[in-house]
Nucleic acid binder design. Structure first.
Length: 434
DNA sequence: TATCCACAGGAAATCAGGGTGT
DNA sequence: ACACCCTGATTTCCTGTGGATA
């Protein structure tokens, strides 16, 4: 065992030495992080101007209007807001405004949002992560705002606000936040909502819509040439001189432009390509690196997503995988997925039986994530069901699932359920119907 | 043409687990 | 110890339904 290990031993000292000796690709890779705010935001002048106009009165201590920002992912909504807030802070007004940035995807409940707002403002007393009634926190928050924020303005930026709206209690908390001002004596608040879905307003409480939805700023998607500008600017900071081959940025921009002009994606692509070049000790980043990066990036997202799912969801995916693996001619339908799930969950200690209803929800989630596609179809006398297809390679699914401890051992379990005559017959009939 | 299967999927209830103040 | 709070996952209960079959 020991000798065997030595054959493959990784020489870490040598590796680091080589690394330091080798040609450098990055100059400042932090500039590719999502939190990085560039000095200039190309092609966002209109939006910057609009936001500046709306927020300027905060410098005089007046209440700015609440508004919404729309745009697809990677159109610079968050970056622009942060950029403007930075500039505003540099004006040294006597009413220096506060900015509280909330991502509703991370802080996903009314309680946590209130607690977060309170805790970022409060110096000493903190709200515990759970336990208190919401209205108590709300009242405490009002007192705190008047105390600490004084006669300044507090901007509450709610990123991914659509997620909040579609949850129970989401509209209530928004309503409460919109009318904070009515309950405040000297301080003022202003809401800024950020969303990538235009449709979410339909679910918005009319009372909230009237104050928040009146005004909105649209962030159009970038086209390829705009993306080129963004990438060129950023590359100057991120990479060493002369590292990028000249056709790299156009390709990167073109690929991202296909994806509704997602700048975030373009930047991720660039980083990944840089890392490829670095790892293989290349002097330059080439278009081939970009192409590799693209493949890798897609898989990364999927892998990350699957690993982050709850175990039960992973088991539902495992069920789908097993059906597709052990009877490749099998049509995957929701009922069978349920039965296979019931079977394999018995193999893992401590995993409880789910209802069909729940499994159905997990199937929908997998479908929403783009891992599978599920189409409801009526089979006439054989009832309604979902026809499920794996949308990503089975090898990839296998690779990820094998990395999950509790699932690894059942990856070769051939479901008994699939071998029953009843199921085989049904599958036979279904194949003719499709 | 009426029937009827095997689910879909919405709404509300329940449970357990993390807390609180009194 | 007690009554109560918030959340997330799940169950319970439910109504709806497209189209092959009798």
């Amino acid at each position: 065992m020991k000798n065997h290990e030595n054959d493959y031993q990784f020489n870490i000292d040598k590796y680091y030495k080589n690394y330091l000796k080798g040609s450098r690709i990055f100059n400042n890779r932090n500039a590719l992080e999502a939190s990085y705010i560039p000095k200039e935001l190309p092609h966002r002048d209109i939006q910057i101007k609009e936001i500046a106009e709306k927020t300027a009165c905060a410098l005089l201590g007046d209440v700015p209007p609440s508004f919404l920002c729309y745009g697809m992912t990677g159109t610079g909504k968050t970056a622009t807001i942060r950029y403007v807030s930075q500039k505003l802070a540099q004006q040294n007004s006597e009413f220096n405004p506060w900015w509280i940035y909330i991502n509703c995807n991370v802080l996903s409940t009314p309680y946590r949002i209130l607690a977060y707002i309170y805790n970022t403002i409060s110096r000493k007393e903190k709200i515990p992560p759970t336990g208190l009634p919401k209205d108590v926190i709300f009242r405490k928050l009002l007192g705190l705002l008047d105390n600490r924020v004084g006669n300044s303005v507090c901007f509450l930026v709610l990123d991914e606000i659509d997620i909040l709206v579609n949850k129970k209690g989401g509209n209530e908390i928004l309503y409460d936040l919109t009318r904070l001002n009515e309950n405040l004596d000297i301080s003022k608040t202003s809401l800024i909502g950020i969303s990538n879905k235009l449709k979410f307003r339909e679910n918005l409480d009319p009372r909230v819509l009237s104050s928040l939805g009146e005004d909105h700023i649209v962030f159009p998607s970038y086209d390829a040439s705009e993306l080129r500008d963004i990438l060129t600017e950023r590359a100057k900071i991120v990479f060493q001189d002369e590292v990028l081959k000249e056709d790299v940025i156009p390709l990167c921009a073109a690929l991202a432009a296909k994806e509704h002009g997602d700048a975030r994606k373009a930047l991720q692509l660039l980083r990944k390509a840089g890392e490829f070049a670095e790892r293989t000790q290349n002097k330059n980043v080439t278009t081939q690196h970009i192409k590799n990066a693209q493949k890798d990036l897609e898989n990364d997202h999927i892998v990350e997503f699957i690993k982050g799912m709850p175990l039960q969801a992973q088991l539902v995916l495992t069920s789908i995988y097993l059906i597709s693996k052990f009877s490749s001619d099998h049509i995957i339908i929701s009922g069978d997925v349920y039965d296979v799930h019931s079977e394999i969950r018995g193999l893992i200690p401590g995993i409880r039986q789910l209802t069909k209803r729940r499994v159905s929800d997990y199937i929908n989630e997998l479908s929403l994530a783009g891992i599978i596609s599920a189409e409801v179809k009526s089979m006439g006398h054989y009832g309604r069901t979902k026809i499920i297809k794996l949308d990503i390679g089975r090898e990839l699914v296998e690779k990820v699932l094998l990395e999950i401890d509790k699932i690894r051992n059942i990856m070769n379990h051939k479901p008994v359920f699939l071998q029953t005559d009843k199921v085989k017959l049904k599958n036979h009939i279904f194949k003719k119907l499709i």
